[in-house]
Design a protein around this nucleic acid. Structure first.
Lengths: 135, 135
DNA sequence: ACATTTACTTGCAAAATGCAAGTAAATTAA
DNA sequence: TTAATTTACTTGCATTTTGCAAGTAAATGT
């Protein structure tokens, strides 16, 4: 039995151990936008994650039940990464990050329509986005 | 002029550069509970941050305008660390982390009353908590 | 059969974190 | 008034994580 060390019993601390590194939330972000991605898709993100780091983070996220890895239906050479319910449930958190960032950092034009929707009705936006990921 | 490199223009990415390391959110958590803390207070947290790391993170958070450092009114040997408005604005984010963690990890007994308040009326809870930090 | 795509792994350098001990200014105790 | 203590760090070094570049292996395309 592998024993997972935790720094403390604090929910914040435990959460950080699941996704609180330099890359995990960016991987989760990409999956929230795209619903499903291949290894190569993640490498296309503008932050340019290194291939070994990506492999390590994907594995850790899978071990933490935040994403799943399945063979691509159209090719056995590819794998599909998707969010689990646990991963999808990070959506409200991601929305709050966006709202915070909007207040303190410049927002790229192409993200502004999304933020407008959030401001219009946050709960509805989250609900609809989660439904889109679930279906 | 110091140029701050950013990995991308993404709001999530920029946010992570401000507080997306192994310790910053725990420091912010402590300040949300306590409103103001000294260097020594942070060292008492159960996660046992190393002194050099604490100094480095406090400095980075100050540089990112998330916390302030002022001399303690009662002793020039101490400094008070407090959240700025930018730091306080992370409160909704912190609440969402708690709600997510509540769903997937065991929650210590002493945190459960707080979560009950959040469930009762999230917006009211956040508003009141922020007011308490601001006054 | 051979080249290409895809998902990695490997080796090594650089950066961040962790540990233990040390320092310096301010405060308190003798 | 001097010495011990408190407080906030810094320093040196080991360990871990991240980053870069190149390499590998299975599946697919030509």
């Amino acid at each position: 039995m592998a024993v997972v060390k935790q720094r403390s019993a604090c929910p914040i601390s435990n959460s950080l151990e699941a996704w609180g590194d330099k890359w995990s939330l960016l991987i989760i972000r990409d999956l929230m936008f795209a619903k499903q991605l291949t290894y190569g898709d993640f490498l296309k993100a503008p932050e340019k994650i290194a291939t070994n780091i990506l492999a390590a983070r994907l594995q850790a996220l899978e071990e933490n039940s935040i994403i799943t890895k399945t063979v691509h239906p159209e090719s056995r050479a590819k794998f599909l990464y998707q969010l689990t319910q646990k991963g999808i449930d990070l959506y409200p958190l991601m929305v709050e990050i966006n709202l915070w960032a909007e207040k303190y950092y410049p927002i790229p034009e192409e993200r502004k329509p999304l933020l407008a929707l959030i401001h219009k009705d946050k709960e509805a936006f989250i609900k609809k986005s989660i439904e889109a990921l679930t279906k």
